[in-house]
Design a protein around this nucleic acid. Structure first.
Length: 357
DNA sequence: ATCGCGGCGCACTTTACCTCA
DNA sequence: TCTGAGGTAAAGTGCGCCGCG
């Protein structure tokens, strides 16, 4: 998106149009370019903005945002916005089986070897949240099948020990494997604890090496394939939500820039009206804008009658929208400029003082 | 350097299950 | 209580990439 305004010498090529600049947009990032150019006799100023959104993903290097050709002022329209998932994400989506708990049956089964599991998972930080899950009992729930109902009844009656449960669950697992080979497949909803554990593991590393996968599978009484599928689906959900966040962000950017464009057009009309009512307005000697590198204040450097005053408008409410840091010189109409004449002189002296230093 | 193979991740899809009107 | 629509998670499928022999 490129926004340009031009006032004054229409024959002068518009600044941003004759420079090869590319703003490459991908689904990971987007660039915006905004420029304001006013005729050379009065002001010739160009600004560009670059929008860059940081992402926590490792493929940030895919972002290709153009390097600008030494713009007078570099504007960063978007803050560094680390994407934070809503807290509900952790609990609602993956923990969605909570509502199914009551419908399932409990087939508690302990890991075959806790030591093996901990050894393999030991790659995680010792103080990680996942560590607290190491001794947790996990359950498998299913809501269908005569075996499931039978198991639920057994557990509810307390007439079955852990070993019996383990055997029954293994039978269920074999049945599931048979289903995989057969015509139908039964879905096993992960328990809340299993989902929470997988979620904690995902926070530490979004991908698993074979050792970690086996360890998780053993610890959660799942097949390695199930752990692998869960991580794949989890990554897909993460990417989907990231896309939604990006989309919302771009919508807000578009709205902000549209409003800024509307405001600049209004200013342009005011300046054109001023030019029409003041024939000598544009025939003044060239005025050069100088920005003080120390304080970034803008001031004229000629001693002619000041008809245009600019200052750094860092309090523009529009520019503050969405946390933007927009530093843009404001150009006042003549009536307002008269009120700023003294301020301009002060600014000029201010710049001279800095230069003399 | 090339080829075949296996493993892995990803995009897309299917399917089973759940919720709710 | 039944039912169908819609949502979601688990799982299947196909493809491309990469490392290895």
């Amino acid at each position: 998106m490129e926004l340009g305004l031009s006032l004054g010498d229409a024959s002068k090529p518009f600044g941003i149009m004759d420079k090869s600049r590319e703003v490459v947009t991908t689904t990971k990032g987007v660039g915006f370019c905004m420029a304001l150019s006013i005729g050379s006799n009065l002001i010739d100023h160009q600004q560009t903005t670059e929008v860059k959104k940081t992402k926590p993903s490792s493929d940030e290097d895919r972002h290709q945002i153009s390097a600008l050709n030494d713009p007078p002022i570099q504007l960063n329209l978007l803050p560094n916005t680390p994407v934070l998932w809503p807290s509900s994400d952790n609990g609602s989506s993956e923990g969605g089986s909570s509502g199914q708990m009551g419908r399932g049956f409990d087939v508690n089964r302990f890991p075959n070897s806790v030591e093996d599991t901990q050894e393999a998972v030991s790659s995680s930080p010792p103080n990680s949240a996942a560590s607290s899950f190491h001794q947790m009992d996990f359950c498998m729930y299913t809501s269908t099948g005569s075996l499931g109902r039978h198991m639920r009844d057994l557990v509810a009656d307390g007439g079955v020990g852990n070993n019996e449960v383990v055997d029954a669950e293994r039978t269920s697992s074999r049945a599931s494997d048979d289903d995989e080979n057969g015509s139908s497949r039964k879905k096993l909803r992960l328990s809340k604890e299993q989902s929470a554990f997988l979620e904690e593991s995902f926070k530490e590393h979004s991908t698993l090496n074979p050792k970690q996968k086996l360890a998780l599978a053993k610890q959660l009484n799942l097949r390695p394939r199930q752990v692998e599928v869960w991580f794949q689906n989890r990554r897909a959900r993460t990417k989907l939500k990231q896309t939604e966040v990006d989309c919302d962000h771009l919508k807000r950017c578009c709205e902000t820039l549209t409003e800024e464009n509307r405001r600049l057009h209004k200013e342009l009309q005011e300046l054109r009206a001023l030019k029409a009512s003041n024939p000598f307005y544009m025939q003044l000697p060239a005025t050069t804008l100088t920005m003080c590198p120390s304080c970034e204040r803008v001031a004229t450097t000629t001693t002619t009658t000041t008809t245009t005053i600019s200052n750094t408008d860092s309090t523009d409410p529009t520019s503050k929208a969405n946390g933007f840091s927009l530093t843009r010189p404001r150009f006042y109409p003549f009536s307002q400029a008269q009120n700023h004449t003294q301020a301009s002189t002060t600014s000029r002296d201010h710049v001279v003082k800095h230069v003399e230093k």
